[in-house]
Design a protein around this nucleic acid. Sequence first.
DNA 1: GAGCCTTTGAAGAGG
DNA 2: CCTCTTCAAAGGCTC
Length: 624
Amino acid sequence: MPQLNGGGGDDLGANDEMISFKDEGEQEEKISENLSAERDLADVKSSLVNESETNQNSSSDSEAERRPPPRSETFRDKTRESLEEAAKRQDGGLFKSPPYPGYPFIMIPDLTSPYLPNGSLSPTARTYLQMKWPLLDVNHGSLQSRQALKDARSPSPAHIVGPFCLEFPGQSDLSLHQFQLSNKVPVVQHPHHVHPLTPLITYSNEHFTPGNPPPHLQGDVDPKTGIPRPPQHPDISPYYPLSPGSVGQLPHPLGWLVPQQGQPVYPITTGGFRHPYPTALTVNASMQSFLSSRFPHHMVPPHHSLHQTGIPHPAIVTPNVKQESSHSDIGLNSSKHQDSKKEDEKKKQPHIKKPLNAFMLYMKEMRAKVVAECTLKESAAINQILGRRWHALTREEQAKYYELARKERQLHMQLYPGWSARDNYAGNQQGKKKKRKRDKQPGEGNDANTPKKCRALFGLDQLSLWCKPCRRKKKCIRYIQGEGSCASPPSSDGSLLDSPPSSPSSVAPSPSSKESKPQTEQMQPLSLTMKPAHQPLHHPHLLAGHPPPPSLVLLENSAAAAGKMPGAAHNGAHDHGNVSSSRQPGSSGASLARPSAASLCHSHSLHPNSTAPQPLSLVTKSIE
DNA sequence: GAGCCTTTGAAGAGG
DNA sequence: CCTCTTCAAAGGCTC
């Protein structure tokens, strides 16, 4: 039975253990069939990313990768509709199966970006090189996709972005000079350090070469500067660079991630304004010193020491200070001017960004890929696609990101013990205007159709109606499909949970205007997933403490979902939608207006007569 | 130039 | 305990 084992100790950092999935309770058989798989996942959870496991998954991953890339289309339209349309089309191609090939990517922070002290780039441009998980897939898998990607006729340089280039595990010497880390920021990578760091350095294949770091990694010397790089601690996340002196001083919070010695130093040029990207995970002396000098006392960990590297945390952004200008100012302005500037800067509190969550990490990693594949540039549209892809990911795949995110948070916490998300609230930011979501339209509120949790829905007196997990925890966060979960409340007839018309065909496609949002949204499926045959069906609750893949629904097919499990199918969708909308009323409203690509895709997929491949998952976003 | 859009997840505030 | 809000990334778009 599904268990919410909060105790796993390692909940991957996701608080969504409560989140149920559409497939939840769907088919016990499947569940049992995949029980072993679930256990494996549980193991993964406990041990986080397991190398061997990753390896095992590589086959499927590589398989996915071998799939022909979605047709490349250009979406030039500027209108929102066009964006949606684009997204929709993307679904057609991208959504058939999780494009994401497992976790073979290593995210390499863009060293030129914000997190580097003097980076001349936009502080917001934190970018990463994406690297395929070395052990996972061996060249063949990525070859085609890479080639395909290369072939992609994208006006954008994105097609040559790191991810693809780095997909060759064995090519540690691959020269990265030619690649860009992001669309915005060109980054020069040292050929010898292809594996730079990942948020978790241990993801690099060298890491798995016990005691035998590749020769080129030893005696690491920056080719450009000729400056030898200090050994890097593998455990450290690139997000949180520490001074070279700090390497290995502290134990990694994630001890299970065994660091390798001689980890490749993050290929950052030490010359110019760029700094080496040291990797020491925990807050060590240097970091302490650094933090002490840069942050309010209360934010700095009690331990004090000495190293003065001044290497900022990647998440640290000095607000309102343009590095470029200050840089160029040097020698141009009077010392007075500089002094005043410095003072101003001092006055300004460094902005410590929130650690990225699982989805954000995923987006960072996959954005370039999506951009290259569809030549889309608008983040809104891309994010839509990525959101659907995210839902299409298998639990294992998502788990990896959850794990990464958990580590990020961990690291962030260690580095900034006193930091609070609240600190970043606009209200607390000096000179920063508070972002305001658009006010809800009167009828736009999600109140009416706000998804009710078990408790709210059935009340305490009807505990028996609650889904099991909810009963256990006495609370419920998401709808649960099937398995007598609350989600599928028998209310296919119009009860609270009842969602939008179960029949997609009934959905009115008129998403052209925002005014029509609500309705369209209601029926618009958010995600449509083709379930790979080889993919096990994971029951959310089976994974104790596993991060809850939000609304990942795996249905045998849409038809089945619609016909056999009426309540389940759309209820889940409903749930999802509600969650989303409730989360961000304003934005959700806007989104609703758009005929989400996914939704469109869904609607036709779900159609009984649809000859298209049967969607395995359907997530509908409901609104009112 | 600020803010919006769009996504999911995390965290905090408030009821 | 639950709900709501904000922020995190990103880049085009709008005002």
